[in-house]
Amino acid sequence: MSQPATLTATEREVLDDVARGLSNIQIALKQFRSHETIRTHVKHILAKLKARNRAHAVAIAHDIGIFRCPLPHLPTTQEIPRRVSPQGRARCEPGKPGRAASAPARRGVRHRRGPR
């Protein structure tokens, strides 16, 4: 069995920011480094973890326990609340999908195209 990949402290910091969804330029600005340096760190991370891309590297790092927390500060998802009218009915009228019951009709409204 092969040894698990050993990443340097800087590579772990870069990988943590990659897991947060930051681009190389955003990571460079955050860490006060050149974006080319960050690009090199990402290349080394991909090579050490034998990953195909950034997302694969994060998945591998999570599986082998490189991250200190269960998931690297990823936002939790919540159910989107459904908007209901004050009377407790849905806002759209039956038979008219996508039109709100209280929306005024748009008749006689013209849109200009381009400069006059």
Rank of each mutant, 00 (worst) to 15 (best):
M1C: 14
M1I: 05
M1Q: 15
S2W: 08
T6H: 14
T6G: 02
T8E: 10
T8R: 00
T10G: 05
E11P: 01
E11M: 01
R12G: 09
R12T: 04
E13M: 14
E13P: 00
V14A: 02
V14S: 01
D16P: 02
D17P: 09
D17I: 05
D17V: 07
V18L: 11
A19Q: 04
G21C: 03
L22T: 02
L22E: 03
N24P: 08
N24I: 06
I25W: 13
Q26M: 07
I27R: 11
L29S: 12
F32K: 15
E36G: 11
E36H: 15
T37F: 12
T37L: 09
I38A: 03
R39T: 02
R39Q: 04
T40C: 07
T40R: 07
V42Q: 02
V42I: 07
K43F: 06
K43G: 12
H44W: 07
H44T: 13
I45C: 02
I45V: 05
L46A: 06
L46H: 12
A47W: 01
K48Y: 00
K48H: 05
L49S: 05
L49G: 05
K50W: 00
A51L: 00
A51N: 07
R52T: 10
R52N: 09
R52V: 14
N53L: 02
A55M: 13
H56A: 03
A59R: 04
A59W: 03
I60G: 00
I60R: 11
I60L: 05
A61W: 00
H62Y: 11
I64S: 03
I64W: 02
G65W: 01
G65C: 04
G65S: 02
I66F: 03
I66E: 13
F67C: 04
R68Q: 10
C69H: 12
C69E: 15
L71S: 15
L71Q: 12
L71N: 10
L71D: 14
H73L: 10
T77I: 06
E79H: 10
E79R: 11
I80P: 08
R83S: 09
S85D: 03
G88K: 08
A90V: 10
R91E: 15
C92N: 13
C92V: 08
E93T: 12
E93M: 15
P94D: 13
G95K: 04
K96C: 15
G98R: 04
G98I: 06
A100V: 10
A100K: 12
S102K: 13
A103G: 06
P104Y: 00
R106N: 13
R112W: 08
R112F: 11
R112G: 11
R112V: 14
R112Q: 10
R113T: 08
R113Q: 11
R113E: 08
G114A: 02
G114C: 04
G114Y: 11
P115E: 13
P115Y: 10
